[in-house]
Structures are given as C-alpha cells and as structure tokens.
C-alpha cells in the first residue's frame, strides 16, 4: 500500500472542489456526484491520521460557500458523517470491497439527509425524492474509481 501524505489529501480535495464548481445545469446538476464528499470519505477511511473530522468540517464549509446557503449547514452534515466514518474505520478493514461500498452508500445517504433536515429547519421546502440521485451517482463513481485500474487504491480491506 502506497503511503499517502497531506499533499495528496489537499490536492485531491482541490480537484474535487474544481469538479464541484463546474457550471452544471439541469439534469446534469441533478445527477452530479458529490465529488467533495466522496474524496473526504475516501481519505477518512484510508488515512484518518491525515483527514479527520476537522478536515471534513472545513470541506463542508467550502460546499456551504459554493452552494450559497447558510454557513455551517453542510459543515455540520460532513462532520457527523466523518464521525461515523472514523469511528468504524478500523472495523471496516475486515469487510470486503462490496460491504465497504454499502457502508459508503449509507454515509452518503446520511449526509444528504442531515443536510436536508438542516435546510428544512432553515425554512426550505422538501425538493422531491430525486434529491437523493446525488447519492446514487456518487456511489457509482466510487465503484468505478475503486474497481478501475487508474491507480486509486481502495481503503484497507479484507481481500
């Protein structure tokens, strides 16, 4: 396993932010994977000594800025997801890739739900069930990246 350092973490987060900032529109916007969240979950599961709850919180704050909502909504959602990811991180090494994927999918859904609850408290309306399409496209992207031979290693797992 190639050792990761902080440079990798922040470079990948910058890249994820760039993808997040592309001018998505219409259906593409609905189907867009949550690049930032995927990157953060990946580093949380692979290298929790480099990327912890604080990093996830800061990434969430950046997403708050990019979406133009209230400060702290996505930051809180990301921090809670990061807590669950980090506290089960060592147990996850006993799982195989598919079980890990299921857990990541659960984390994605949880983040979206937390963010939605916070937005609903902020006075917004429920945007409809296609809101959860982000999680489905994100998990597909996760699988493609983990299974394809492009040099991204999966988090530690039982093979």
């Amino acid at each position: 396993m190639q050792s990761a350092n902080l440079k990798h973490v922040y470079a990948s987060m910058l890249l994820a932010m760039l993808f997040q900032l592309l001018p998505w529109e219409g259906l593409a916007l609905e189907l867009r994977p949550d690049f930032m969240l995927l990157t953060v979950i990946y580093w949380l599961l692979r290298a929790p000594h480099l990327c912890h709850i604080g990093t996830a919180w800061f990434a969430g704050l950046l997403i708050d800025l990019a979406t133009g909502g209230l400060f702290g909504q996505y930051a809180l959602a990301y921090a809670m997801t990061a807590f669950l990811a980090v506290s089960y991180q060592r147990r996850l090494a006993l799982f195989n890739i598919w079980q890990q994927t299921a857990y990541v999918f659960f984390l994605l859904l949880l983040t979206q739900t937390t963010a939605m609850v916070l937005k609903l408290f902020g006075g917004n309306d429920f945007p409809g069930w296609d809101y959860y399409l982000h999680s489905f496209s994100s998990i597909l992207l996760w699988l493609v990246v983990i299974l394809s031979p492009i040099g991204v290693e999966a988090p530690p797992h039982k093979s």
């Binding site: 912890h52 604080g54 969430g60 702290g72 809180l76 807590f83 506290s87 916070l118 902020g122």
Partner: peptide
C-alpha cells in the same frame, strides 16, 4: 498519539457549525 477522541471533535465542530448557522441566519 491520536489527538482528541472523535466524539470530542464531533461535539466541538458541531457546536461551531451551529454557532455559524445561528450567526449567519
């Protein structure tokens, strides 16, 4: 050495986000 426990970090950052939400809104 792993720093503060995840729970402590979660509580700290949650409080920070809630403070931010309140200040902003």
């Amino acid at each position: 050495v792993r720093g503060p426990s995840p729970l402590a970090r979660l509580v700290f950052f949650s409080a920070l986000s809630l403070a931010l939400i309140a200040t902003d809104s």
